[in-house]
């Protein structure tokens, strides 16, 4: 393996930074080099958030080059569209949360929020594999709606493309959260993974 390049997208407040940093931490536990590019400040106030995670023997740039991401993980339905240019054409994996959060401004400007069907249609010529996860529902079902980000991590991991072991991710989760929260997030990870394993 030279690199695994991942681009994450979503909305400020969904826990993208936490997700990205857990992946980076797991990479270090695994003995890899890594870089994680985050977005802070202005962009976080409910705006679009994009993070890059790179894992490999030697990683220099924190940014993934357009056309070279092995995977896109999107925590919000329509935000998927904003990072597809990073995907390896027809080979990259897309793991997307079907939960839609239409921004108020699109209502004010009468913008038609794209449907899941339209997005899947768009992905047909672009992505290699697509996984649609209702992460919000899964996280709510275990009593922790704010763990949708970790559900997505579980799903992304279960595709087998992350180059990280379950053990290192679990370790990174337990280092990130306090006791009880770590437990529920490990559960969220397992649930997210289970859904994808069922599909495979």
């Amino acid at each position: 393996m030279k690199h695994v390049d991942i681009v994450l997208s979503g909305v400020g407040g969904q826990g993208i930074l936490t997700l990205a940093s857990i992946m980076g931490m797991a990479a270090i536990i695994e003995g890899y080099d890594t870089k994680v590019a985050e977005v802070h400040g202005m962009a976080q106030r409910g705006g679009s958030v994009v993070c890059h995670v790179r894992i490999g023997e030697k990683v220099s740039s924190p940014l993934v080059m357009e056309g070279s991401a092995d995977m896109v993980i999107s925590l919000e339905l329509s935000e998927t569209l904003k990072v597809l240019q990073y995907l390896k054409s027809k080979r990259g994996v897309v793991v997307l949360n079907s939960n839609a959060l239409p921004p108020p401004i699109s209502m004010i400007l009468d913008f038609q929020y794209p449907s899941l069907e339209a997005i899947l249609e768009e992905l047909k010529g672009i992505a290699g594999e697509v996984y649609v996860i209702n992460a919000h529902e899964i996280a709510s079902s275990i009593g922790s709606p704010q763990s949708a980000n970790i559900v997505m991590l579980g799903s992304a991991w279960a595709t087998g493309k992350l180059a990280l072991s379950e053990e290192s991710i679990m370790k990174a989760i337990s280092r990130t959260f306090r006791k009880d929260a770590a437990k529920i997030n490990q559960k969220a990870f397992e649930e997210g993974a289970r859904i994808v394993k069922k599909l495979l």
């Binding site: 357009e66 056309g67 998927t80 569209l81 904003k82 054409s89 794209p114 997005i119």
Partner: peptide
């Protein structure tokens, strides 16, 4: 060879907003 993924479907604008 430059990457050439073109996305036709438009995502809504999502500027940062007051909480």
């Amino acid at each position: 060879e430059l990457p050439d993924i073109k996305v036709k479907l438009q995502a809504p604008l999502r500027p940062p907003i007051l909480c």
